[in-house]
Design a protein around this nucleic acid. Structure first.
Lengths: 118, 118
DNA sequence: GTACCTACATACTAATTGTATACTATTGCT
DNA sequence: AGCAATAGTATACAATTAGTATGTAGGTAC
């Protein structure tokens, strides 16, 4: 993520730069529903994500103070992720969008049958 | 926007695909605060947007049934955009993010002084 | 001693998204 | 005839974002 990304024109822009991207909100949501999650668990939960994207996204969230990364100096390595209060503030809104999306999907048709995020 | 965009893995994913992108939420927000807006007005409001991106984004929003495009067959041309009830459902949540972002920006520092979206 | 575990790192490539700039159509107005 | 106004299109290009493939560390179990 470049510094230029920090140059927002307005607060709507700023906000969505922080939670945009392919996986950010899904990660926030998953971490929220589990409280504290290990890297490997996230990797299995976020279907299709590669380790590179997972690490990259988590680092960006950490930089923006949305997740906390706790490293246990053990072997094999253990790293846990959890949400900051700042990120928790976003959870209701992610839930709102999720519910909105659920209604849209329901309207569309039943044969798409997307996998639930719960 | 490709058809693959329609292939969402979960509803969080689905939701954010519909409102993600550099300008979508800003446009929804601007149209909301003005009710009915003409193309040229939007272009002047959304600082820095190019006609290509504006048209493209509006068409995507229209496809997703978030905005309504009304063409008046006059010369010079007149086209008005307004939100659908589906998009209006998203407004409180965009406002939530906007307020969240305002708090973040305030915390960061005063010397950034981003332009308000109101 | 070698395979295995977790949580990455690195290099490269592909796909998507956005920018810059120029151009069009239509008709009233001067 | 030529220009202004509006809502775009077209084309080429640049930047950003995502994906693939492979490698690494430092122990532990066999």
């Amino acid at each position: 993520m470049k510094d230029s990304k920090r140059e927002s024109i307005c607060s709507v822009d700023y906000g969505f730069q922080r939670i945009g991207g392919k996986y950010k909100c899904r990660l926030i949501w998953y971490i929220h529903t589990h409280g504290i999650v290990r890297y490997g668990v996230l990797r299995r939960m976020v279907k299709g994500i590669t380790p590179k994207m997972l690490t990259q996204t988590l680092r960006e969230l950490e930089e923006d103070k949305l997740v906390v990364r706790t490293v246990y100096h053990e072997v094999p390595p253990k790293v846990e992720y959890s949400l900051t209060p700042i990120a928790e503030e976003l959870v209701p809104f992610i839930q709102h969008v999720k519910e909105w999306a659920d209604r849209r999907l329901e309207e569309l048709e039943k044969d798409i049958d997307p996998i639930s995020c719960d």
